[in-house]
Design a protein around this nucleic acid. Structure first.
Lengths: 331, 331
DNA sequence: TCTATTTGTTGGAGCGCTCTAAGGCTGTAG
DNA sequence: CTACAGCCTTAGAGCGCTCCAACAAATAGA
């Protein structure tokens, strides 16, 4: 496993180490004859450059550090996928750590990522205090996904939750609904803007809002609906898809039909919502795009193309499926 | 962003660079007085060791390369999570690449990972030919997840698909089913052992097998069921959860009840199956465990504790929910 | 023909660290 | 007062590479 070095390739090709370096970096100032010889020698030896040595010598890194709270969550997995796609296109590699939604673990993860002197750092929905983020930002450009910040040194990429929920409310209103309840995500990330968006949209339509405390799980959605059974709205806007699926199942258990008796809208457009069995009307967050923009924000800073912070607020879109319909005419 | 080096810390603490190095590596042969002075200086300067320089100098790597076909898939995301957990416990970091199920892209990804001279390489369901894997294994220990191999240099970690499907068939037989069909995963990864397991289990019970061509998607499951409507079995064993959910939705569209008229079993225990709305009886693959074992296999080789290949075949388990019941007594 | 360029190639220093071998300092014994 | 452990500490070489300055060779301009 003693891998060949540049020196070995140089010796075999009968040139200097520096020339091999030039060839490996694709420099134009090498004669075709030498280039071919070097490439041949490298091929025969099975040589490939040592990324870490290269990084050390050039004082530049082609690594982006990524801290993700939780890979179980399909949301983050897709964001990472988007990050990886853009990074790959530009010859960057990802080094990845999970923070497990614990500030202590996240801090450790941050330190570990920083020890690789990454060109940039993408933090997906981190829970550490802003001070830690600011400190990290002194070491490398930082972009935050699904978390906002006022720090001048960090970029942020979020979806516009207010607008997303407004899309859902507008859709229901246009179907004729007036009694529309919101199952609230509580302290969950992005729950606040979603609630704000609901209240604003209802006010804009001159309708009375009704916020019901709930959480980001199907069990939470079911529980909230059971509390609603005495005085049912004609439509429900859930804080996310899981919550919506729970709500639907509780409605059906109570002998009600969706969307016959009650319309339900989710949020996130998870793979769950897309299943024909579920076929949930929901709001799509462009997850992959979130990751792509995060990577691009980082690369812009790396290349020195920008110093001012950027605040992406992506437009979510409504995906209409089978859980919404006009309300029944009742007394 | 010019970060302090060991030299700076040494100067500030009034000691040599080598002594700082010893402190950073936690060597016991440093007096308490000096250790404290070094730690203090490091703290004040905000110094943290440079992982790449360290790796280069020590000729050892604390990085594990991970190639994942596709992060969208929750299966892989959870395996990566398991890998990360074990790696983290042992002070290793993950560097990650996606192969996109294309041999060309996977080869690129492999080369890129190898350029970091990782201590080990975990390939999750790779599609490259065995020869490429063998070549990679010459550079670093390799463990394959969800793909088998006969190569002596590589370890493998898989779930026992034959056994998993047998679990499903046994469960249905014990409920009284005799006409049990299998919706086959076609050329999909692990589809073959699952089919084999079905055939063997049916034979063991003296029942006539019925394999229906399908694929790993809900649309595929629905289509397969529609082809079955003329001569329906009393139970269906799907190749995975998505397929099972599609099958259920086609059954319900045809006016049939699950599990009243037909029982359905999935495979994989995705988060989908666990939803109360779906509540699918399915076979659980210990995904996180798959990742953990993969990381451990790598670490054993890294530490030189083992040279013989290991072939983990994890026991799946049956998760009984609401889509299976005894068959209706019919003529 | 001789001096300027240009073009291609090279040695050597140095990136931030580890590691080995050798050095300094204490303390105790002779 | 010297000798010799022992324990800390250090100088220095080197990991595999990049980059700069210097140089040789080929071409151009006068």
């Amino acid at each position: 496993m003693a891998r060949p070095t540049m020196e070995d390739v140089a010796a075999r090709a009968g040139v200097s180490r520096a020339l091999v370096s030039l060839v490996m970096r694709g420099s134009p100032k090498v004669s075709d004859r030498r280039r071919a010889a070097v490439l041949k020698a490298a091929e025969e030896l099975g040589y490939s450059p040592h990324a870490m040595a290269r990084s050390l010598a050039s004082r530049t890194s082609h690594v982006l550090g990524v801290m993700v709270s939780d890979l179980h969550n399909a949301f983050f997995a897709e964001v990472v996928d988007g990050l990886d796609a853009v990074a790959g296109e530009h010859g960057f590699d990802l080094i990845l750590n999970t923070g497990g939604r614990s500030p202590a673990r996240e801090r450790r993860a941050l330190r570990s990522l920083l020890s690789f002197r990454p060109a940039g750092l993408a933090l997906l929905s981190p829970v550490v205090p802003a001070a830690d983020i600011g400190r990290a930002a002194e070491q490398a450009p930082v972009v935050l996904v699904a978390r906002s910040s006022r720090l001048a040194a960090v970029d942020t990429v979020n979806d516009d939750g207010e607008r997303g929920i407004a899309l859902a409310v507008d859709h229901l209103v246009s179907l004729g609904h007036e009694r529309i309840a919101h199952l609230d995500g509580g302290g969950g990330s992005q729950a606040a803007p979603r609630r704000r968006g609901y209240l604003a949209a209802m006010a804009a339509h001159g309708l009375a809002p009704r916020v019901v405390g709930s959480e980001y799980t199907d069990v939470g959605g079911a529980r909230a609906v059971r509390g609603l059974l005495g005085d049912l709205p004609t439509a429900i806007v859930s804080c996310n898809d899981f919550n919506a699926v729970g709500a639907i199942s509780a409605l059906e258990e109570a002998g009600l039909r969706v969307p016959g008796d009650v319309s339900v809208v989710g949020y996130d457009n998870t793979s769950l919502a897309a299943l024909r069995h579920v076929s949930l009307t929901t709001v799509d967050q462009p997850r992959n795009e979130l990751g792509r923009l995060a990577a691009e924000a980082l690369l812009q800073r790396v290349r020195g193309e920008r110093v001012a912070p950027v605040r992406h607020l992506l437009h979510p879109s409504l995906v209409v499926r089978s859980t919404t319909a006009p309300p029944v005419r009742s007394a």
